[in-house]
Amino acid sequence: MGCSSSLPDRGSGRLVGPNVENGGAADAKNLRVKLVLLGDSGVGKSCIVLRFVRGQFDPTSKVTVGASFLSQTIALQDSTTVKFEIWDTAGQERYAALAPLYYRGAAVAVIVYDITSPESFNKAQYWVKELQKHGTPDIVLALVGNKADLHEKREVSVQDGMGYAEKNGMFFIETSAKTADNINLLFEEIAKRLPRPALSSSSSIQNP
């Protein structure tokens, strides 16, 4: 991508603001994590987030510009709560060079592809590599095959997705934002996989 000259250098972008310090992320019972969604345009990243945060699905969903910020808190069975601060990034090519701005410091990255589009699966693999190289160490990676309701148009098999995820130590799931299948499960599973701060420690998940 050529027009990256005025974009931030890798490593300089850091979307951790002043509210991290006082955000209470150090509380072992009330976690607060930065989560970023990445993936090709049109795979349904915004739909997944809106389904999770608002329980809505809009079939005429809109092209995301830059990145949208949403948050949602879930309660786990062990009575911990996890507040996800979600960066829903634009999948458009012109924003690719900007991605570090959004994934820097993220504890979780959800990489989404469309099971009807092998191209988007390739793009997902690009993002996995990018995060392995430049993402936060110990970042929790999830690979999500979305649009699972469109099984008759499926072009990426479950085995392919799962195989790739296993090889790269990722959590894998197929979802449908349209039918809400596995959406909540996705975030619950992520929450379970988060490294918990030791009860005595005050280290924050956001600042590993």
Binding site: S46, V65, L98
Partner: peptide, 26 residues
């Protein structure tokens, strides 16, 4: 751009008359 209505956003934009070469963040 409908997505701005969905939630708060942070996006690079350029104001051509202000500085056509660089992005600002909106």
């Amino acid at each position: 751009s409908e997505s701005f209505r969905t939630s708060e956003s942070f996006s690079p934009i350029c104001l051509p008359r202000y500085n056509a070469m660089a992005f600002l963040y909106a």
